[in-house]
Design a protein around this nucleic acid. Structure first.
Lengths: 192, 192
DNA sequence: CGAATCATGTAATGGGTTACATGATTCA
DNA sequence: TGAATCATGTAACCCATTACATGATTCG
């Protein structure tokens, strides 16, 4: 039995808990200005939520954790619901900046049920495969069209980097849309 | 070491728990033949794991749950480790087939830390942005090259659908690789 | 005014991530 | 024969998902 390491006394603030992607999304959104959980939900839903979704309950839990870590402060409204508004602290800005300065080597995860089903196509009927291709084609086409719509709407007030993010989103959706379209045509030429 | 006869302890019926993507990946991999958790890990690591990763502990937990649901059976080896080998049951095949026959309308999740950082680029220094672009370019380029490698290796024994999956993976990686390359050039022309 | 939708939260559960642990095999 | 790596598993914690709940506002 190895002796336990001495417990360093303080949780206090800062440097304690490890931040994850959700944390940085919340910090990032708060870096544009204070917000309630609902406002975070909206900001995210219109932007990042297009490719990386968060349940609304996460946006109630995570700010609370960040407050405990000292990266966010909160003010509680007087009155019925005692609504909480969150602001990023200097410490929070620092954490965000550190994250942005880190190397970014993680593998991108593409959680696409359609891709999974395609992989297991051997167990599917020809009609299943056709339906899959149609579903995914329409789904990605719709999202690509949505991005175009969105760009028109936000072009004025979005910054350069936000527009770039949107551009990658569009390129991605168009690529996948085209894949499924090509695949549908292949299925016609060479039926399973 | 001689395998024991399949344990048919059968905790009554299936239909109980709701299956998720992990479940179907395990079922799908077992549909090619019985496997231990480690073998599942390998099969997945070479294929689906390229875009949708699973911790190895999930591949120990999930089969156990599927056994409880009656969708998978297990045999336990005699000897030191009492290694477990899993097989898909008829009920499991049925569940897999039902899944493949369902509509596929879920939103694809692209969990890409690089995209997140790009979105919050306003808070980053010019050097951060350049580094980000370089990191992501190299990362996606490497994966795209890996796919080409892989295709050469498996072309003989992979089925049509598996090769198609790989093709989409390649198209995706090339698209993203190109985005970051274009972006790097844009940064040279028009520095932040 | 009532219904629908917006807005704000909590609770329970399941499961994904990380860390720990160690037996078995390979190979220098 | 010792170190490294392969292989197999468990445990704890954190967090994501889902369901529940209800006050506030809008609009027909």
């Amino acid at each position: 039995m190895t002796p336990l390491p001495a417990e360093s006394a303080e949780p206090t603030t800062g440097r304690s808990r490890k931040l994850n992607a959700t944390s940085y999304v919340v910090l990032g959104m708060l870096s544009y200005g204070p917000a309630t959980s609902y406002q975070l939900k909206q900001r995210i839903g219109l932007t990042i939520g297009n490719f990386w979704a968060f349940a609304h309950s996460q946006l109630y839990d995570e700010p609370a954790r960040l407050v405990a870590a000292g990266l966010v402060s909160q003010t509680t409204e007087q009155g019925g619901r005692r609504k909480r508004t969150y602001s990023i602290t200097d410490q929070g800005r620092e954490a965000l900046a550190e994250w942005l300065a880190e190397p970014t080597l993680e593998q991108t995860e593409v959680r696409d049920t359609g891709l999974l089903k395609l992989f297991f196509g051997m167990g599917a009927s020809p009609e299943d495969i056709r339906r899959l291709a149609r579903d995914r084609y329409q789904s990605h086409r719709a999202r690509a069209d949505g991005y175009i719509q969105q760009r028109a709407e936000i072009e004025a007030r979005a910054d350069r980097w936000q527009l770039k993010t949107l551009e990658l989103g569009m390129r991605y959706e168009r690529t996948v849309e085209k894949f499924w379209k090509d695949f549908m045509e292949e299925l016609d030429r060479d039926p399973p």
